[in-house]
Nucleic acid binder design. Structure first.
Lengths: 230, 230
DNA sequence: ATCGACGAAATTGTTGACAATAGCTTCGAT
DNA sequence: ATCGAAGCTATTGTCAACAATTTCGTCGAT
C-alpha cells in the first residue's frame, strides 16, 4: 500500500484520538506547539482533518487555539486542576448519591468485586492495575447513576487532568490513603445510602485536592518528540 | 456599501452569536434544520464561516450535527433538562458555598441590592426584570466564588436550557415560589454561612426540577421562519 | 392505488491552491 | 556590540470549485 492517507470525518476522529492518546501517554507535553503540517504528515492525514481535529480538541479544553498562531497543548495550572477537582467532587457526589438511590441492587453489588480487586492490587503493589480499577470504579458509578449529563461533564474534566492524575497515582503512600476512601464509596453505594455515598465521594476528591495543593508548580513548556503512532 | 459579506474568524463569531441569539429569542425552534447556504445568505457570511460556527455551536451542545445530513437545533428532552438542572444544583451549590466562604464581605453585601430589586420586580409583576435579575444573581455568585471552571460549565449548561428557562419563568405563581429561595441564598452568602448557602442553592434548583417534572412533553420539531437579523 | 426503482435537485464534504500573517534572520547604522 | 528595520520563511486562514451523498419527486409495474 502506497499513500493511504486517512481523510474525512473518519480521519478527523482518528487524528483527534491519536493526539488524545499521545497526550495521556506523555508524548505531548503542555505548551508544546501542534503544527498542522507536521501532524498531517506523521499521521498521514489531510491538513483539513488535522485542523478539524484540533478544533474538536480545543472545544474539549485539551488544546489552546490562538488565531494565526496555531495550536498548543493547553497548560493546566495547579490552581485550575484544583478547581476541576472541586467540580468533580460536586458532580461525582451527585452520581454516587443517585447510584446508591436508584441503581438496581444487582448492579450495585457488582461494585464489591472492584473493591476486592483494588485491595489485591494495592496489597500486591500493582499501581497500574489499581489506577485502571480506579478509573473503572468512577466510570461505573457514573454509569449506574443514569446521569448522562454529569457523566459527560466528568469525562471532559478528567480529560483535562490526565497529566496530574498520572503524577498523583505514582505518589508514594497515595494508594494507602485512597483505598479506604474508595471502599467507603463502594460500601455506601451498595448499602443504598445516598447521603453517605455523596459524602464519601466528596471526601475522596477533597483528599485529591489536598494532594494537589502539595504539588510543585507545573513544568515549563518544553518541546518533545512527537512520535504519534498512526 | 454593496456586498459586504462578513468573513474569517470574526464572521465565525458573528454567525454563532447570531444563531445563539435567534435560538434564545425563539426564532429557531428545536429540531429545525440549519442549512448552510440559507444561513450564509441571510447573514451575509461565507459558507465556511457558517460551517465553523455550526461546529462551535455543536461543541456547546446547542446544535446537533449529523454527518452528511446537516445541522439541526438540538432537541433537549424534559428528562435531559432535569439532569442538566441536577448538575446545576451540584455546581451552583459549590459556587454558593465558596462565595460565602471566600468572597470579600463588601462584594457579598452587594447581593442584598439584587434581592431588594427582585422583591420590587415581583411586587410590581415585572417578570422580565425579575428574570434578568435572576440571571444576574446566579452569575454574580459564580463570579464571586472564583470558581472559573464551574462557571464555565454552568454557562454551557444554561445555554442548553434557554427554551425551558423561558417557559418556566412565565409560569403563574413561579416567582412567588422562587423569590424566597433566592433571598435565602443571598442571606446565607452574605452571612458567610457556606453550608447554608450550598443548601439554599440546591433547594432552589430542586424546586426548579419539580417544576420541570410537571412539564408536558416537548413540542414536536416544526419549521419556523428564520429571520436571523444580521 | 401501492410499492419500488430510477433520476434530478439540493446539500454537505473535500480538495488544492492561494492569501495573509507571524516569527526569525540578516544586515546596516550608531 | 546593540538595536532596529527589512526581507524571508514557516505557518495558518480563506476561498471557490468540485465530488459525494442524501432527499425528494416521478414514473412504471403489479
Amino acid at each position: 500500500m502506497a499513500d493511504n492517507r486517512v481523510t474525512g470525518q473518519e480521519g478527523r476522529r482518528l487524528v483527534s484520538t491519536a493526539i488524545r492518546r499521545a497526550l495521556s501517554a506523555g508524548d505531548l507535553v503542555p505548551g508544546q506547539r501542534l503544527v498542522e503540517q507536521e501532524l498531517s504528515e506523521s499521521l498521514h492525514a489531510t491538513r483539513n482533518c488535522v485542523r478539524e481535529a484540533l478544533q474538536d480538541l480545543a472545544a474539549e479544553g485539551l488544546v489552546e487555539l490562538v488565531p494565526r498562531r496555531g495550536a498548543r497543548v493547553r497548560v493546566v495550572s495547579v490552581e485550575e486542576a484544583i478547581q476541576i477537582t472541586e467540580c468533580r467532587a460536586a458532580l461525582e457526589g451527585l452520581c454516587a448519591r443517585r447510584a446508591a438511590e436508584h441503581a438496581p441492587a444487582q448492579q450495585r453489588e457488582g461494585l464489591r468485586e472492584i473493591g476486592t480487586r483494588m485491595r489485591e492490587a494495592v496489597a500486591g503493589g500493582d499501581l497500574n492495575t489499581y489506577s485502571a480499577l480506579n478509573r473503572e470504579l468512577h466510570a461505573r458509578i457514573a454509569e449506574m447513576s443514569g446521569q448522562k449529563v454529569a457523566g459527560g461533564l466528568l469525562d471532559r474534566l478528567k480529560g483535562q487532568m490526565v497529566r496530574y492524575q498520572f503524577r498523583l497515582a505514582l505518589r508514594p503512600g497515595r494508594p494507602t490513603k485512597s483505598l479506604p476512601q474508595h471502599l467507603a464509596i463502594i460500601e455506601a453505594v451498595v448499602t443504598g445510602d445516598g447521603h453517605a455515598a455523596e459524602a464519601a465521594a466528596r471526601a475522596h476528591l477533597d483528599s485529591v485536592i489536598e494532594e494537589l495543593r502539595a504539588t510543585p508548580a507545573a513544568e515549563p513548556a518544553g518541546s518533545a518528540a512527537l512520535t504519534v503512532g498512526a
